[in-house]
Structure formats: C-alpha cells, structure tokens
Design a protein around this nucleic acid. Structure first.
Lengths: 207, 207, 207, 207
DNA sequence: GATGAATGAGCCTTCATTCAT
DNA sequence: TATGAATGAAGGCTCATTCAT
C-alpha cells in the first residue's frame, strides 16, 4: 500500500499537534508551532485540516466513537444475558472488565490524556461527563430489567450517581495518566477496583 | 479602620476578576474586561497587581493558605490525641468532618470553583493534587504513630493512595460545583460519605 | 473645547481610512495600511473602531442618516402642502431642488464617492437602491394624495419606476463624481434636469 | 472538427469561473473553488490560463470585441446612409434598436452581468464608461456629418453627454439585470425608451 | 498617583501561484 | 503533461503590558 506525501504530511501534522497539545494544552498551542513541528508552512496545514479545532477533533474523534461503540455493545450484551436469565451479567463491572478498560486506556494513552488534560477550550472539555452520561444511560436500562426480575437495587438520586461515577472514571483515568508502567497500573487498578466496588455495593445495596 | 479609595478599588478589581474568571476561565478572560468591570483603567490596575496571574493569585492564595493551615491543625490535633492514647481520633474522617468540609467549600464557593474549574493556564491548574499531597503528608505522619501503637493499617502504595484521595476530593468538590443547594449538597454528601468510607475501610483494612 | 489625543487619533484613522478606501475600494484596502497612514499600530486601531467594516460605517452612517432625514422631511412638507391644497408642491422636484441636491452631494463629496464607488464588499454596496427605495416610498405616499385630489398621474409599473429612478440618481451622482468643479457641475445639472424632467413628464403623464 | 480533452477542460474552467464569479464577484471568488468546479487541479488550470484575471478576460473579451464591432458597424452604416442623403438614419436610436439591444444583452446575459456587477477588482470595473465612450465616438462622427448637411443638433458639452449616456446604458442594463423575464423586459424597455427619448429630444434639440 | 492611548508581537486563517514528482 | 502539496506573504484581529502625560 503506497503512502503518498499527502498521507505522510497528514500524519506529521497529527503527530506534531498531538505532541504540542499534550505539552501545552489546546489553547496555549499555536498553529505555527504545530506546523513547524510537522515541517510545513501554515498554508499547507489548511490543505489537511479546517483549522486548529478540526485538528484536535481529528485526533480525538476516533476514540470518542470507539468509546461510544464499546458502551453500546457492552450494554446490549448485558441486557441480552439478563433477558436470558443469566444474572451473572450483573458482574459486568468485574475485575476483568476493569483490566480491559485499563488496557484500552493504555492503548490510547495519548488520546485519553488529550481529552482529559488538554482539551480546555474545545468542545471536548467535559469529556468525563460525556463518559458518565453513557454509563448512566446504560445503567438505567439495566436497572429497569433488574427490577423486572425482582432484583432489588437501591434507588439512588441520579445526580449523586453522576458524581460518584464521575469520580470513578476520573480515578480510572488517573491510573493511566500517572505515568505508571502498565504492570504498576494493573496493580493499582486492583486496589481501586476493591475500593470502588465496596462503595458501589454499599450504595447500590448489592448483596 | 478607615478604608481608603485604594482599598475600595482593590476590592473592586478582585470582585470583577473573580466574576469574569468564573464566567470564562483564566485564559479566556482579558484584563481590559476586568478593568472595565472594576470601573478603572488598565494603567490603574498595575498599581494594584503585577499582572493577570498576580490577580488570580491574590484571589486564591488566601484560600490556599487557609487550607494548608486547616490541614496542619487537624493533623496536629490528631497526632496529639493519638499520643495521648485517644484512638478515636482515627475517626477524624467522620461524617461530621465531611459536613465541615462541605461547609467550608460552600463558604468559599467561588474560590474553589476558580481553583478547580477556571485555573487552566495558571500555576494552580493542579489544585486537587495539591490538596491530595497535603492529605497524604498528614496521613503518613498519622500512620507512623498508629503503627507505633500497634494498630494495624494496610500498607497501601503511595501512588495508589494518591489516586484514591484525588478521586475522593474531586468528588467532594463536585458536590459543591454541581449547583446543588446546600441542603441537597448535604444529602448528597451523606451518600458519598457512605460510598467512600466503604472503600477506605476495605482498602486500608480498618476494622 | 479641548481635543484630546484620542480624538486626534480617531480623526486621523477616519481620514486615513477615507483616503485609502477612496483610492482602492473597501476590499483592497487593508487595515495595516490605514493604520500606517494614521501613524498608529494595528492594536491602537481597535481602541477606536470594532473593525474594518465598523470604520467604513463610521465614515458613512452620518450621511446615510442625514439622507433619510432629508427624505422624510421633504416628503412630509410636500404632503402637508398638498393637504392644504397647494398643488404647487408637486414641483418639489424642481430645478431648485436639484441644485440643492447637487450642493448636498458636493458638501459630502468623499462620502458619496465612498458609498457609490468604493463600498463593494460592505453592506452599503447597494446604496443607490437604498436611495431609490426612499424616493419610491415617498412617491407612493404623494401619489395617493394626488389621486384623492383628482390629479391624474400615470400608473407606472413599480419595477420600471425603480429602474428609472435608479438611473436618475446614478446620473446625479455621476455629475459630482466626474470631478467637475462646482460651477461646471451646476451647469451640467441644468442639462440633466432638462433631460430627466422631459422623461418624467412623458412617463408619468404630468401636464 | 474534433474536440480534444484540452478544449473540454478549457470550457469547463470557463463555465465554472463564470458561475462562481457571478455568485460571489471577482475578488471573493477563489481559484481553488473554480478548479474544483471544473473538476481539475490548480496546476492544470495554469496550463489553460495565466491566472485569475486572465480567466476573467477570456470570459469577457469576446463580448467586449463583439460590442466594439457592433458599434463600429452601426456607425459606419449610419455614416454611409447619411452620406447618401438618407437622413432617416438618425433614427438609429429607434425603438427597434433598443429591442435589438435588449435581445443582445439577453443573449449574453451572464457576460453582461459579469461585466456590470462582478468585475470589481478587474480592469473591466468601468465597463459602462467603456460603452459610453464608444457611443460618444460614434456620435461625434455622426454629428459632424449632420452639421455638414445643415441639420441642426444642439451642441451639448461632451462631459454632460457622457453622463447622460452613462445613465442611459446603466438603465438598459438594469432592465436585464433585474431578473425580468424577457417579456417583462421588453415591456419595461418600452417605458424606458419613451422616457429617454423624451430626454434626448429635449437636450439634443431634435425635432 | 492615575490615566488610557498606544504598543507590538502574536493569533488563526486565506489564497494565487509554483514546482518537484 | 498533469498533479496537488506546498509556499509565503498577507489578511483581520487580540491582548497583556507600558509610558508619556
């Protein structure tokens, strides 16, 4: 598969942009620096992206889509199993699931860092809230099914839940962003899993 | 105590700065607007503050100092009591303590919001980490004393603790920043207290 | 009346802008050149005007308002006299009136040139149409009154009238913009008055 | 006559250029858009035209030449007939002639619109003046001959004549540019013919 | 001491044109 | 010969800060 100069430059811009956004944040990064980093002039940039925000989006949108997809799939899987009477699906927030998430974050380390730490001034500045909303949507659909199956689950105020899940995801992201090695991250994840599961059981009233 | 025009102007600048930083964030707020809001000229501004960042510091440093002070006092009190054999001090992260914290945050609502949500681009952008470091310093000194008294407490990796406490404080701040009324905030705090205490007990191995 | 440096600079910008807009047209004039002509930096410019188009508006709006005012007054005067039975008011497009108009255009020579020849790219690019609309509005109100007084006036298609009046006003403006001396302009106006009056009488069926 | 791909591309560029110039005017149209519209690359464009202005010229020059030709022919015809004693030639500004002109403008609608409304920023921006100069040249030659034949014709100042004819042609073009249907345009032309003929007779002193 | 006009470097973006491939 | 990526100068505009008055 031949790769033309367009693709090469395109990637150089993405790379340079990612590097500088990570270093300085979105707003404090200027286009000239990105272009210099990519070895091109500012004029050339606009052949590849519509502007600074578009570059940020190009970096980050694939991850956003991937996350949405993952949530949708996980939820559907969970609902299917519950419909089929397999209550074990409840454990979809299992230790295993967390490790998968850690894996996923590690695989997209830079992009997560971009979204969490460097997105101030873009439409992505509330990324964690976006994730939490996905989670709560999913949770609500699962809860309805659980109650139909006469499984008790505490009725927690939705805003409180939001805050708790915000905390949970922030925490997950912190693991990765703390410059842990992956092994350390996994060890840490175990601790955090214990920590939060205790909380979830307490608050949601899971047995 | 007479208050001269200097002080009046000074306060007006602080107020205008606070208002605009809260609305737009540090970076997207411009000095001219702050001056206009304070009813002064840009030239006059520099008689009061060394620049934009200095204004932000002036707003926020008192709170920072106050927090440092509070931590130091609480820690010393705790250590004193432990030295005197009163182990109940362990409960200093009690429900009551959380309510005190909530109170404190509410009393300094704007400044906390400034530090947490609007400090991007200043040296305060990692405010929560600063808080967590205070907490962990305190904790370490307490732990040492506890172990001397043969009270078992799990040995948790310091970075993991950092992450967990980061999560904890983020969560506390979120309560306030969610535009809850104070009553709602207190109700929410109860939930969150239950949630996190479960986690702390689990991870620290408190009985 | 003291004139501060602000006013001096303000006027210098207006002057420089007018000069360059007249020389190159709105679009081909750049702000840096205007500023250079005014002896200031681009930054200083924005203390005086919100931007390039705002500068153009500042130059031209007083004239626009003045024209609107003139039309309103003339129309009301005419309607009053007609109501009082003074049919001579019909002659408000008299030779005398044209000379007044010529005077007025000469007194605002640069601004008219700006609006007619140099406004491409601004919201004023259809200035002559604006004038014609004022004229036709006025005309319609007068016509209604005339017909009430049983004075016959041909019913000309409104679009045709628009075109004719467009032609008439373009012509008036051309007199001035042709770099005539005022004396020559007045002589020319006489010719043009004869020319157009013949046409108006023919088409409107005035006796 | 075979038409190669070169010719096809050439025409596509002309078409795309015409379309976009008409939509946005010369200056606000950019070459990249023209190329995109023609389905070619910017590089290819320069194989066909020397630049943006050259493209505009290529669109418009044939019409300019055709107009010049028409004027020359009409003048010569008129002069011939006058030489032969056929004074009726004077009527070459007849109703019929106007309709012919209207026809001609309609047949070249886009190009006229280009020259009149969209040529700002090109050397064609004073198209109407160009036409008027042709008319006046012609007129002068006819006038000389008329006077030789002892036919009286008022001696009108040349600049005044320029202004009047400018008005006349602007008006003619307005008919077409007003988005009239052809039938409406012809009706309007009748009105305008009456209007201007009255003026011409008055000013030139034609019987 | 206060004023506020001015600075000047910097920002993002546009575009006719060129030239290595 | 055609491509289209790249140029590079210019555009309008912003803003923390300075300094003559």
């Amino acid at each position: 598969m031949a790769v033309g100069t367009y693709e090469i430059t395109h990637d150089k811009i993405l790379e340079s942009g990612k590097k500088l956004f990570l270093e300085n944040g979105y707003e404090r990064t200027n286009l000239r620096a990105i272009c210099k980093g990519a070895g091109i002039t500012t004029g050339a940039f606009y052949r590849h992206f519509d502007g600074k925000e578009a570059l940020f989006s190009a970096l980050v949108d694939p991850l956003i889509n991937s996350i949405e997809h993952k949530f949708k799939n996980a939820t559907n899987l969970c609902l299917d199993e519950l419909s089929n009477g397999k209550l074990a699906a409840l454990d979809y927030v299992s230790e295993e699931a967390i490790f998968e998430t850690i894996d996923f974050i590690f695989d997209n380390f830079d992009l997560f860092k971009l979204l969490i730490d460097c997105s101030d001034g873009t439409k992505y500045s509330n990324f964690v809230d976006f994730i939490v909303d996905l989670e709560l949507d999913s949770m609500e659909r699962v809860s309805i099914l659980l109650r139909k199956n006469n499984i008790k689950i505490n009725d927690v105020n939705n805003n409180d839940l939001h805050i708790i899940y915000h905390s949970y995801y922030s925490c997950l992201f912190e693991i990765v962003l703390h410059d842990y090695s992956k092994d350390e991250a996994i060890r840490c994840a175990k601790t955090i899993f214990d920590f939060f599961m205790a909380g979830f059981h307490k608050v949601l009233g899971l047995s």
